[in-house]
Design a protein around this nucleic acid. Structure first.
Lengths: 277, 277
DNA sequence: TTGCTCCTCACGTCACGTGAGGTGGC
DNA sequence: TTGCTCCTCACGTCACGTGAGGTGGC
């Protein structure tokens, strides 16, 4: 019989850990002095403790270990648990590797050109019903008037969703599509289409503040990030107007309008996937 | 200006997170209504929030992020921080990979032969001063008498340390070394040596309970584990008697003596290193 | 009797999620 | 006035480390 710290030393644990395992019912002392409350352990308990520590090394929680030890050592239960754990660990590992490569890519960028002030984030995106109009990509396109018309139509049906307007750059057809989010389907009208912006599992996003003349810098930063982090584009570039100006009085949800060009906020989005191919 | 949940939706965060960042001073709302306490955010705060989220994705804690944001965007500080983070993440990644391969090896063993009941753990070991005697590895060696003599000598000098006795198998010289731990150096005597069992950074250990006739099973399990997990031996095998029997009355620290052979507890230890070469 | 070890609370860790209970805004 | 959103606590998470304050054992 060993006192708690002696036993802890033998098993390279700590008295606190042993008390914790006692409390959780994972490993009860083989004897407890009724008057002093002293815990006494026997070497016969070492194998159990070793199992606990081994499972812990494999990333199991004490709760999971307790479940395994409670059952009379069922091999199939153990197999299942460990198989599930492998999947967990693989997922986790992948996440960590992406973290690491993200930090490395960032360091690379910092060393080469200093901090450009653009943060690129990757996130999934849900599908969204939109009302849009396609325009040819010329220098004279009047996005303002287009958005005004779209907003007026949405307002008439009270179908405007609380989300910012955007344009999609369809490079293949050399078209620009201006669109605003809808809460529900509305009847077709001439020149406009109701469509669903599809859900994407990975969208690389960057936020640009200020006038549109500096937007190309943000685009460059976004494309560089995509390249440096081993992704490739799998969709069209989108410009989302989180805060925009308007010269005409227009019906948009509260909060989206900016009064000066320095208050403009635009998000560039690009659907991407892993791999260079 | 956006209300908190509107702003949360725009930035794919949650109201709770924004309140948390406010509390930590990471991102204060640009306006707080004095009467209602309502927080209001502007799109101009989105870039800051993006930075916070990006740093978080890279594994920085909110505290570290706060430090970075507090300084006027010092590039060198950022560089240092990220370089340190790369080291952290690499270490962490390595640990996870070892966890994963440990679980896989365990699964492999389970599938092939069921659970043998042996838990192998890897741990570092500190150096320990020992009193030992080397014996030829023959069938008639009397370890009991050898340990009795060692214990008597240590007891005479009151130098016995609280740790179990062990034997080291010196395969190269075909010798067995019986040894007990000492608290301090004692004078040499004939036939015995005081020596230091060196510190090891990685020792694979397995605990066996019961009679010594089944010890080879434990040895097999240990060697299989070492092989399956991609390690190789870099030292001699040791048998540590955590609980042992004695036919003669002998002076050993409390708790080490077993009364029946089923109470015997023995740990096998093998110093190892990564790599098959 | 003096140290040493043990005991039982109980806080702190990290970044929030999740109610509870109450009030402002349209 | 009724929902809806907001507010401020405050607990819970996970596996202990780390005192605080007090008592048994050699």
């Amino acid at each position: 019989m060993f006192r708690i710290s002696e036993f802890a030393r033998l098993s390279r644990t700590s008295a606190r850990m042993l008390r914790h395992y006692d409390e959780l019912g994972l490993l009860k002392p083989s004897f407890v002095d009724p008057s002093s409350g002293y815990r006494f352990y026997s070497t016969a308990q070492l194998p159990t403790l070793q199992r606990i520590l081994a499972f812990q090394d494999m990333g199991l929680s004490l709760f999971e270990i307790a479940q395994l030890l409670a059952q009379p050592l069922s091999n199939t239960a153990l197999l299942q648990k460990l198989e599930a754990k492998v999947v967990d660990l693989e997922r986790d590992l992948e996440r960590r590797q992406m973290q690491l490569s993200a930090v490395r890519a960032r360091l690379e960028g910092l060393r080469r050109s200093g901090d450009e002030g653009y943060e690129v984030v990757l996130r999934p995106q849900r599908a969204q019903l939109m009302l849009g109009r396609r325009l040819e990509f010329t220098d004279e396109l009047d996005l303002g008037a287009t958005f005004d018309a779209l907003e007026a139509l949405a307002a008439k049906h009270e179908a405007r969703a609380f989300a910012p307007p955007l344009v999609v750059y369809h490079d293949e057809t050399r078209e620009v599509e201006a669109a605003i989010p809808l809460r529900f389907q509305i009847p077709d009208s001439s020149g406009v289409v109701v469509f669903t912006l599809p859900a994407e599992s990975n969208v690389a996003c960057v936020i640009h503040t200020g006038g549109y003349d500096a937007l190309p810098n943000a685009t460059t930063a976004l494309l560089e990030w995509v390249d440096r982090n081993g992704y490739r584009a799998v969709g069209s570039l989108r410009e989302v107007y989180l805060r925009f100006g308007s010269s005409t009085p227009v019906q948009v949800p509260t909060g989206f309008l900016a009064s000066t060009s320095s208050e403009l906020v635009t998000e560039l989005q690009l659907p991407v996937a892993k791999g260079r191919d």
